[in-house]
Every structure is written in structure tokens, then in C-alpha cells.
Amino acid sequence: MSTTQWPLWEVFIRSKQGLNHKHVGSLRAPDATLALENARDVYTRRSEGISIWVVESANIHATDIDDADSFFEPSDTKIYRHPTFYEVPDGVKHM
């Protein structure tokens, strides 16, 4: 007795002022208003959040996992972007 499914939404929660919204999970709801209310009931039962974003999963674009190696390769080879690449004499302070 299957029924037409509601769309899938991804839920992001800001746990407190000063922090990013963070992905916490997903749920199904007929529209954004109900997705927000359901997200509140499911993901913030213990004061986990002060702000919620919901995004329809279909609207999320992601990198392709199979191309991840080549996609992220440019940064793997640039170790000089990290401070530890540079040598500084022992006596130097505040750096």
C-alpha cells in the first residue's frame, strides 16, 4: 500500500550564535514550512538549535566521488600553502 512520497529534505542546524549551520540529517515533508516544523520536532528535541535550514535534496549538487582524487589533486601538491612548510630559527617569537 505505497503512497506518493513527499520530497526529501536535508536539514542543517545552527546550534548557537557564532557557529555555522551543520548538516544533521534528512526527512520527508510536503513543503518547506512543514519540513522546518518536522525538523524542529525531530532534530531539536533537546535544544540542539536556534536556527534551521532545510534544502530539498534534489537541489544539492555534489562533487563526483569517483573523480575526487583528480578533483582535489591541485591542493594536495601545494604543501607550501601550510605554515609548517617554512623553516624559522628557534629563537623567533610570536610567529
Partner: peptide, 9 residues
């Protein structure tokens, strides 16, 4: 209820 929610949306 689920159908009504759909219709309302």
C-alpha cells in the same frame, strides 16, 4: 492526513 498535507502544500 498525508494527502491533505500534499494538497495544502
Amino acid at each position: 492526513v498525508r494527502e491533505a498535507a500534499n494538497a495544502f502544500a
